[in-house]
Amino acid sequence: MSASAAEPAIVARRGRPLSWALALPLAWVALVVFLAITADWIGLPDPAAQELILRRKPPSAEFLLGTDNLGRDMLSRIIYGGRTSLIVGICAPFFGFLIGGAIGMSAGYFRGKVDLLAVGFIDILLAFPTLVLALTFVAYLGQSLFNVTLALGILSIPAAARVSRANTLAWANRDFVLAARTIGASNWRILTREILPNVLPAMFAFWLVAVSVIIVAEGALSFLGLGIPAPQPSWGGMIADGREALDVAPHTALIPAAVMFLTVLSLNFLGDMVRNLVDPRRSAL
């Protein structure tokens, strides 16, 4: 094959359209986030309004996604539930990454005793059975949106600490960090100005995955009856409620399960995508 003959094929590859593997997950996550934010203004029925006569209705023109065991509108509950799941899903790992990221970066940068201490702390946290710890925590402090978020946030500390520690270790040995020391930059300045910007992309990719993990974890907590207290809807709580009527009205459990599945899958896709964007670039530099 001659070089010139193959040229057009290569030029064509340059203008490749946005891949479906990226576009679909992005669109789904955007839709979920948009609805969760605008839920109050798009004319949804009250997600807590019960109408026992209209319980367990299948999807119809009146109730697009049907009604649940207590005759509440499923669509409204899915959207408001999405709001709850997203708040927990976004805030809990954010909290965990703030603390875990700081621990991991300090460990990877200072090494020595700091590292030993941090790794020990992470190992202790990891040694606890995750869900049992969250259950105990919520049972003890009481069920509330804040406490559930806090409990799940603490659970995400070890993973965040490990990711940031590994990344910091890799970057802290680079010559530009040594160069910053030769000009007399303080440790704080080196950590925030030189290392953090390089660690952040990898952390962001991992955070997207963590959001999906937390959404599932919140679902598990609700399923066990220790999630967000009723009547506030959450996807996990809806699946738990729907479980009672799986034989007569399967949609009450399957619809929230499907929505959760799609959201988690999309977030994982996006997380992988971001990680792929970040990694080769780092090795190329």
Partner: peptide
């Protein structure tokens, strides 16, 4: 430190890519 500076072997690794 400002009076005592250093230049490194790998010029690309010695500059912060971000």
């Amino acid at each position: 430190r400002p009076r005592l500076q250093m230049i490194f072997q790998d010029p690309i690794a010695s500059l912060n890519p971000r």
